Each structure stands twice: as structure tokens, then as C-alpha cells.
Amino acid sequence: MIVLFDIDGVIRDVGGSYRRALADTVEHFTQGQFRPTPEEIDALKGEGCWNNDWEASQEFTYRYFEAQGQSRSDIPLPYTEIVDFFQSKYRGEQAQSDGSLQWTGYICDEPLLAEKAYFEQLTAAHVGWGFFSGATNGSATFVLQERLGLDNPLLIAMDDAPGKPDPAGMFLALERLGLPEEHPVIYVGDTVADMYTIVRARAVQPDRRWIAVGVLPPHVQDGGDRQTQYVEILKQAGAQIVLSNVQELTPELMATV
């Protein structure tokens, strides 16, 4: 068995970091006129093609001005400025005496959703594992190595492959793991794009067993209609099962999905 994990919403709670930076960015570029709610962010991501939060920030901004009767071609919205502002909120930077940079933004306060012992359990059970994420390499490495304490784990991030739902990064991760092709592959994610990635991988390599596992991000776990709807959205996008926390996906459960 091989299991690949998304990071944001699965390994770390980004409700107060990535999503906050996204909302900050849209609010900034709409001159304070529009700040997307968590529900509106979920709805946009539910379209399945806005896994990249920089692109999602830009899209929200475009749609706001289009609703005011403007054309996209008339809206000055350089993508590099979107990225720079987003990163100033999410990552932040502070120069150190040795010339290095210390991150000081929202990333520093992200709650972890898994523990190092969970991955040690997978290794002990002879489960191959790694990470395929749309986060930048720096952000993903920071949470996996500095925060979680993993020793140089397999990571395919934004800079290594096309964004999801393109499965190219997943194929690259499997190639680097070097395990036999007959091993089933589980991908664990929290968005529609994550589930679509498995659907597309299955279409490219139909002889391999592909399993999509959804995880509810913390911001939707209210026990009400929103949580129920999110579960259904993930299942409609291809999730075989939906869990409340990634660590519920034990080796014993993997054998049954």
C-alpha cells in the first residue's frame, strides 16, 4: 500500500493562515469593498480548479469587479502583486543578524493535525508514504520538517509539478518512492481538486488501484449542515470515504478501503 498526503487542511489547519491571507488579499485589491467568507471560499474551491490560493485570490477579485460591470481586460491586477501581498501576510519576513530570514506571518500559528508518531506507525506497518501538495516547497518543508519533525520526507510541492487536479505530481511522487506498480495508491486530501486528481490518475493508469480519501478541514467541522454538505461534495468528487482527521486512516482501515 502507498499513501500520499495533501498538506493544507490535512496535515495543518490553514483556516487562520492561507485562507485568512486569501481573504486579506481580496479585501486589499478590492479597496476594502469585498472580503470573501469561509463559505464563499469553499464554494470557489468546490469548482475544482482553484487549488492555488494566489489564483483563487485573483479570481475572487476579478469576479467582484465584473459584478460591478467591469471587464477583466480593464482591471489592472498583476499576478505578481497578488502573490507578493499574499506572501507578506501568510509568510511574512524578518531579517536576522546572520542575514537569514525568519518567517513571522500567519504560517507560524498553524495548528498541526497530525503527529510524527502517526507516520512512524505507517512505516512500521510497511506502508509507503509521502506528500503531494500545492503549497510552496518552503512552506511545505517548514511544516513537515521544522514543525512536525519528519526527517526529509518525500515531497512533491508547487515548484515540482503542475497544480492539482493534474496528477503529474502524484506520478512523480510514486516514481520517487520506487515501489512496485501493483501497490494500490491512496491519496488523502480535503478539497474537490484533491479528489479530481485521483479521478484523473485513474483515467491515465486504469490498471492501478487508486483510492481517494477525503478529510474534513477543521473549519467545516461544526456538526451541522455545512459539515454534511462538505462530506457530500467530497464524495461526489470521488472520495470513497471521508474522515474527520487524517490519523483515522490507520493501516487497518487502509486494508478495507
Rank of each mutant, 00 (worst) to 15 (best):
G46F: 06
L174F: 06
L122N: 01
F85H: 07
V10W: 01
G69V: 05
V199T: 08
F86C: 02
P180G: 11
A173M: 13
P167A: 13
V220I: 04
P180S: 15
L144A: 10
F132L: 11
A237P: 11
M254F: 04
V242S: 09
D194F: 01
G48M: 04
F65Y: 15
I41E: 09
W54Y: 15
F131Y: 13
I82V: 06
R208N: 00
L234W: 05
N137Y: 15
Y230P: 03
Q96P: 01
A125E: 12
D160E: 12
G214W: 00
V127M: 13
A203I: 11
W103E: 12
D13K: 06
V83R: 00
A125P: 10
K45H: 14
V127D: 03
G238P: 00
W103D: 07
A161Q: 10
T250F: 08
S71C: 07
D160W: 06
F86M: 07
K116H: 13
G48A: 09
D24E: 11
E232V: 09
H183G: 00
R35D: 08
A237G: 04
I233C: 01
P251L: 05
P184L: 00
E66G: 10
G149H: 07
Q229F: 13
Y90C: 01
F60C: 07
T228N: 15
Q102Y: 13
G178F: 04
Q102D: 03
E55I: 12
S17K: 09
G223W: 05
S139E: 06
E81N: 11
G92C: 05
A114P: 01
F131L: 14
L22K: 00
F5K: 01
R209I: 12
A135E: 14
V215T: 11
T25N: 04
G149C: 07
V3C: 01
L122W: 12
G223H: 09
L234G: 02
D159Y: 12
V26T: 07
F60H: 04
C49D: 12
I233R: 00
A212H: 00
D8H: 04
T256C: 03
E47Q: 15
A21E: 00
F29C: 12
T136H: 14
E81Q: 11
M170P: 07
G92A: 08
G223D: 14
I186H: 01
V231N: 08
L249Q: 02
E248W: 05
R12L: 08
R20H: 00
I233M: 14
V26C: 03
I198E: 04
P218R: 02
Q94W: 13
G130D: 03
I156M: 00
R200P: 02
K116W: 03
E27L: 10
I211P: 06
A135V: 10
V143E: 02
E175A: 11
R35Y: 08
Y118E: 07
A239I: 03
Q58S: 11
E175M: 06
Q96W: 01
L112K: 04
P218K: 10
T191W: 04
V246L: 14
G48W: 12
L22E: 02
D151Q: 15
F34W: 06
R209W: 02
Q247N: 10
I2R: 13
D53C: 02
E232T: 14
